[in-house]
Every structure is written in structure tokens, then in C-alpha cells.
Design a binder for these strands. Structure first.
Lengths: 218, 218
DNA sequence: TGTAATGTTTACCAGTCGGTCAAATTATCC
DNA sequence: GGATAATTTGACCGACTGGTAAACATTACA
């Protein structure tokens, strides 16, 4: 009868586990490059090395694949921000947040591009996630930063725009990789570029946010 | 016999001028959102308010439209960087570069997204421009910054990554507009967000690059 | 080992894609 | 006003799109 469709049955078989993994892996490849509209099931099927109807056996529609991919990636993608610790030393927290985000741009560029494509195209599939969980998390961490600034531990600044600028500078190395490589040219475009970027960004943000001494309150 | 195709004839008629303008305007709307692969001629035709064969009378192919659009936008897009003046005061130059880039993100978000889409998808249509004219311009301006740093007018830093970070932070407000709005929420997502962003970014970059006193040479 | 559930494939569908063609319409210029 | 060139359109093409149906193959399990 075959009603599997990956969710109906309580326990997923080993083969389901494997195939779904294989499909999402291929889908990530394709969606990350062409976005949702620009990607086709046939492309994904080819990359995954299976027939199109076979893909559609595990994911009923193209949207279901995309949805599943986004859901899985979104959680891990926000991990670095979640790790942002209110109790920690501000300078260290910012420094390691930058470093972690940069590592993700280096190690998971496809995931970064998947989101970039989605948001760039108006986030038609993840608007709720942005306005809900994402906003809440950012609000929480922005408050932490605001308190640090108020206490003079870092410079007074808009915490939201600080977060945006860390996102954009780090993800730039994944999303605009082609451009970065083109501009740096043969010589400087090697893997060392991430180390250079890390050094520069840490310098920029740490110096840029140096607290103004203890500073009086109110 | 009508061989116009917009380029064969030396002098372009008023009507050609107008229609091509109209088409490129519509194409910008569509390409900026969906990227090249994700956009269709029919969509563009509908936005432009003309029939599909009529579009194809002025631009032989979808690629020709895209090409034409990119060529036209690329020049103006790099204008702010070109204006970067080696003779000027470093702090002022950086400040006004940021401001100009941010104004472009605010006033020409579609153009920003057009490029973002293109680069994100591997820049299949503009690789040459990136490796050629763009790289040359950036090399030139990076040298200016390097000299400033060497003279102690600004902090020692990698000029390429400085430029990347200005690009990414400013364009973020165009390319990731939906996300920015979602995170800032109803209250703070108004037009004032560009002023807030400008203030933050100027603070970040100016403080982040404060020169270390005159500093000895060699 | 049999059989029922699971997994895979071939053939196919209706709608959309980029693009063509010839006929019809409109502007231009004498 | 008429000839000529420029513009516009409806009808159409083959290739591709997301997705389906049903036959076939494989696995799990009694």
C-alpha cells in the first residue's frame, strides 16, 4: 500500500532515513545556487542520483523538500547567536560570536546561501520564522548588548544594527564568495582569506566598540 | 523589413528609447526578486504591460535583457567607490563612502538585489566584470587605504576586507530588507532605520579604524 | 519461504518555458 | 494620402516543468 511519505509511519525505516538525507543533501546543493523558483526537481534528482518520482515518494512536493531543508538548517544556523552569553565578558563574547559565524560561513556556505536566496527573494517561505523565533532571539540578545552598553562595558550603540553588521560581514564570505575570490585574485583568495577576515573583523568590532571607561549612569 | 533589434540601426527612435526603458524597468523588478533562472519573460512582459513577442522584438533573448540590465547598473553601482578620494581626509572619505553606499541601498534596493542574486548564484553572467574592472578598481582603492594605514592616518588593517565589510554592511539593508524589517518589528522598521544604521556604521568604522597617533615610519 | 509492506521505475499528463512566424497595425516621410 | 519601414500581436513550437498512475522490484517479517 505504501503510505510512507516519510511522516505517516511512526518509525522510519533505515532506508527512509538514508534516502531523505541523500535527497536533502542534493536539494541543498541546488536550492543554494538557484533559489526555490530557479531550482527544478529534475536537477535535484540528478544530483541525488535517483529518479524524480523516487524523490517525490519521500517528499510529496518541491515545497516540502525546501521546507524540510529550511527547518533543519534554521536551528543550527542560529546556534552561535544562542551561545551569546549575557554573563560572559563582552569583548570575548563578541569576538567569539564573530569567529563562530565566520567558521559557519567557511564550513557551511551552502546553508548560508540557502537563506540568502530565500530572504533575498522576499522570504516567502520563512516569514513566520523571521517574525517569530528569530525576532525573539535577537530581541533577547539585543537586550544583553544594551545592558552592556549602558554599563559602559562597550560603547553605546544600537544593538540591532550591531547584530546585523556581524551577520552581514561574516555571511558575506559565504554568499558573495565568487566576488571575494574575484577581487582577491589568485594570490590572496586561498583558504587564508578566512583568517585574514577574522583578524580584520575582530579588530574592527573590538576597537569599534571599545567602552568609554566606567562612564556615569543616567 | 524591420531589423531594429535596438542596435542594428545607428539612430534609435524615440519609441525604441522608451520601450527599452520600460522593459528594463520591468526586468529589474522581476530579476531582482527571482534571479535569472527564476524569472520568466512572461512575468517581465506582464509587469511591463506589453506582449511577450513585443519584448523579444527589443531584446532577442532573456539573456540579452539581463545582460543589458547588468551592464547599465554596474557602472553606477561602483560610482561611490570611484569617488573615494586619495587626497581627501581618510576619516571623511570612509564616512561619506559608507553614507553613499547606504543611500544607494535605500534608494536602489532592486539594483542591489539584482547583483546579490547574480553573485549568489555564482555570477555566471558577470564573472569577467568581477575579475576585470571591479578587481582593478578595488585594487586601486585598496592601495589608497594601505597608504593611509602605513602613514598612521588610520589603523593598520587589510584594505580588501575593509572594503568587503563596508559593502556587506550597507547592502545588507537592501538585500536582507525583509529580515531587517522582521527583526526590528513594527516600531523600529520605519524609514528611520537607515538613519540609525548610518549612525551605527559610522561609529563602528570610524572608531574601529582610529589611527594610532602619527606613528613612526618604516 | 511466502506474503504483505516498502521502495523504484517507466510512461505519461497538463501547464509553462523561451522563442519564432506571419499577419496585422501603426508611425514616418515624401 | 500613399508607400515604406517600424512596431505589435495571436497562434504556435518543441523542450521542460511539477506531479501522477500503475506496474515492477525489493525488503522485512511471520
Amino acid at each position: 500500500m505504501a503510505i510512507p511519505r516519510a511522516a505517516k509511519t511512526q518509525r522510519r525505516t533505515r532506508i527512509q532515513e538514508e534516502k531523505e538525507e541523500q535527497i536533502l543533501e542534493a536539494a541543498l546543493d541546488v536550492f543554494a545556487v538557484s533559489g526555490f523558483r530557479g531550482s527544478t526537481i529534475d536537477q535535484i534528482a540528478e544530483v541525488a542520483g535517483m529518479s524524480k518520482p523516487n524523490l517525490l515518494y519521500y517528499f510529496r512536493t518541491k515545497e516540502a523538500m525546501h521546507r524540510s531543508l529550511i527547518d533543519r538548517v534554521l536551528f543550527t544556523w542560529l546556534e552561535p547567536l544562542r551561545a551569546f552569553d549575557a554573563e560572559g565578558n563582552p569583548e570575548n563574547e563578541i569576538r567569539s560570536y564573530i569567529r563562530r559565524k565566520l567558521e559557519m560561513a567557511r564550513d557551511f556556505p551552502r546553508e548560508s546561501r540557502l537563506f540568502a536566496n530565500e530572504v533575498l527573494q522576499g522570504a516567502p517561505h520563512i516569514e513566520d520564522e523571521l517574525k517569530g523565533p528569530l525576532k525573539e532571539l535577537v530581541d533577547e540578545k539585543a537586550e544583553v548588548i544594551r545592558v552592556w552598553a549602558k554599563a559602559g562595558k562597550i560603547a553605546k550603540c544600537d544593538p540591532y544594527h550591531l547584530i546585523f553588521s556581524i551577520w552581514s560581514t561574516t555571511q558575506h564570505y559565504a554568499d558573495f564568495d565568487v566576488q571575494v575570490r574575484a577581487v582577491l585574485g589568485q594570490g590572496k583568495a586561498g583558504e587564508g582569506r578566512f583568517e585574514d577576515a577574522a583578524r580584520f573583523l575582530e579588530q574592527l568590532f573590538i576597537n569599534g566598540l571599545k567602552g568609554h571607561a566606567p562612564q556615569s549612569e543616567s
